[in-house]
Write a protein that binds this DNA or RNA. Structure first.
Lengths: 226, 226, 226, 226
DNA sequence: CATGAATGAGATTTCATTCAT
DNA sequence: TATGAATGAAATCTCATTCAT
């Protein structure tokens, strides 16, 4: 048995000690695997190999597969949560601006980043991991829904929007963003027509803002849509 | 245990249940299991038990787990496909009516029915079953997208809609319906706020149709929105 | 892969169905293994091979190794318990006769039978299986101790024995029997001097009965010791 | 973490504990673990933790688990062997006194000391460690048996005892002592009736000595047994 | 000397699949 | 057709052992 192994095209020594880096590397590798094959479909051997370690090392940092899964969701989400939800707390008073800014943030943070696989993972495994489902509801869905529904609500109150149910409108607003994230990690790669998520989202907001505009052609109002 | 029982002096088959129903029962049971736990997370034992048969019987009708999975998706989809896609071929010339009618159809066929778990299943397993992914793209996504994008396109041409990209607008239209279906089979059960999918969809169409309406200045326009 | 396997020198078909026989065969095989190597030292593979089945079959009947172990102790003990403890309920009024008869029974049931490995097993694994320890105390040690201590007690009351502590005398009585059982399954096989357990026990009872005889040379008493 | 710490202005070795003590500490810790869980059931990690060191350190002193086990039995036994067996070589000519003194010694050295777990360990692992079995037979069982059997033999020759088989009588004599040691380290802790080993042994010797006493009537008899 | 991260062989356990009945 | 005992490959998990620091 040789003294060296090839990892990602690079020859490395066995027995390299990198305590601090390991857990994060394993979590990253696991995220990829879980996203590709789901929880049950992922073999710890694959996670280990992808992380450039052996199975034993995975168990050095995570007591079992289930805890690794939870760690993956949490760890992948947590560092972004503050920034994303913090990003929502933008200043603009105008509800449309608030929403648009939030969407810029969300789509920037979500689409095309590894974070985008999390929704798929959570949706797919909610049945097996109620704990994760609730965590995601509390920490992600809840705040985002609160922020957007509140913005819509204020838009209605301030006369920028028609009288709509803010909670239902929330789905109208958010669904295409989520769908784009799911698409990229499921059917997208098998589809021949590529989806330009950012462009789609731009037009989406445009349509929805017009759809939310007050009934009467409020005289003197200037709709500015980029 | 013998193959026959004597009932009232007559020898009868022990299992009188129509044997032709068996495969369908197994598929139905499998759909539930796959939807709950995913492909790899589902044990054939569970499928069998839920179908009221034994594992061996499953293998009588399906050569292996993978084929059972494909059968589930196909069989669950196929009997609806014609009706749904046929239903899309509704007559109304007015694009908004066409779309509205299609949505009535789709949400009626999807939300709250066992069919609603299919999208989740396909999204979750697309990585493991490219064949299924392509089948779903070809047989479901494609036609629906073609129909809706075409309706939008014609709406634009006929002056009912503003000039929008029909492919992108398709996502704006369809996303909340899909999201509702996913929600019901993943996070919904863990959320304390129930989602009234039909009501949401109604308002959604309302918003989108207004958002697609041509620029206001054209006087003499008759917006008819229920 | 051949259609036949060699089990115990005999060629047998694979896939022989013997539902009723299996659990007992597995328990018997496991008893041997556990007795030889202890709980942790026993590989389920060995148990399976010795029982002429595969690992999977073991798990068909026992949920895990621990339950198999408990089953082994219980099942090995239970069928003998009634007979052994029942055998204690001998009729003779004379305490010495009661005790002697009980010892005949116990040594007949214990020495040289597979039952003899149980004490070793229980002693060795009491630390890991408190449940087994208590079971053995309750079901085996308790009754035997009660019977013998009671016989001694009555012997004292009736004037057949000196005034001794029956509980302590119980150890004097029983220890060599137990030691013989332990010996046969541990050091005995490595010793060059074979131990004739039955003979040893005979002399043991002789010594102890004399040692328990009342102080004064009770006139007219006839000690009959074989 | 540096190898040195500054204490009161002076640089001192961080680990001031005598390094010579380490192996003994590890052996002591291992004895406890092996006694509790058996050889295979003991994790080197536990041994290390109990000894206040790390696994690596164990390997500094013992080439592997098996050697550690052998070392435990040997090291635990050896320092006592001389004293115990030496103690047996007591002066008294009277065989009963010789035996009683030996028992005082043995029960003092065995009961309630860490030495008492060795018999359990040896009995439990004799199957896996024939070498240990033979070592124990040669170094412990042999000398003790020789001493006691010889004492009994001489007792018979000198007319202090009846004509008995010394080898069998050896078991009658020693069994309760051994049983007490086993009991304390296996079932005893799970029993609600505590065993006063010393008291039991006292009465035991009393009974056995009486049981070995020559037949009353024959004054001046000299029993000679082959 | 001592550490403890990393290893990898081997154990337990699961479960899709087979096949005698 | 239906069963379910039996299989065996592959998964998860454990832990004695190694070695860079």
């Amino acid at each position: 048995m040789g003294e060296h192994v090839e990892v990602g095209g690079k020859v490395e020594k066995r027995w390299t000690r990198r305590k601090d880096a390991r857990p994060a590397e394993i979590v990253a590798a696991a995220l990829d695997c879980f996203a590709e094959r789901g929880f049950a479909g992922t073999r710890l051997d694959d996670v280990a190999r992808r992380a450039g370690v052996t199975k034993g090392t995975v168990y050095l940092y995570f007591p079992n597969k289930e805890e690794l899964f939870k760690a993956v969701v949490r760890e992948t989400l947590l560092p972004h949560l503050d920034r994303v939800l913090g990003g929502l707390e933008g200043t603009p008073e105008d509800p449309r601006e608030r929403i648009r800014q939030a969407f810029d943030f969300l789509s920037g943070k979500l689409l095309g980043t590894p974070l985008a696989v999390i929704p798929k993972l959570v949706i797919a495994e909610a049945g097996n991991f109620p704990e994760i489902a609730r965590f995601y509801l509390d920490e992600v869905v809840g705040p985002v829904r609160a922020f957007l529904a509140d913005a819509i609500h204020r838009g209605v109150e301030l006369g920028h929007f028609r009288a709509v149910d803010p909670d239902h409108a929330f789905y109208t607003l958010i669904a295409p963003l989520l769908l784009a994230a799911l698409w990229q990690n499921s059917l997208g790669p098998h589809d021949d027509r590529p989806l330009d998520g950012a462009a789609m989202i731009r037009q989406h907001l445009d349509i929805v803002f017009r759809g939310l505009a007050p009934e009467a052609p409020a005289p003197g109002r200037k709709e500015r849509l980029p």
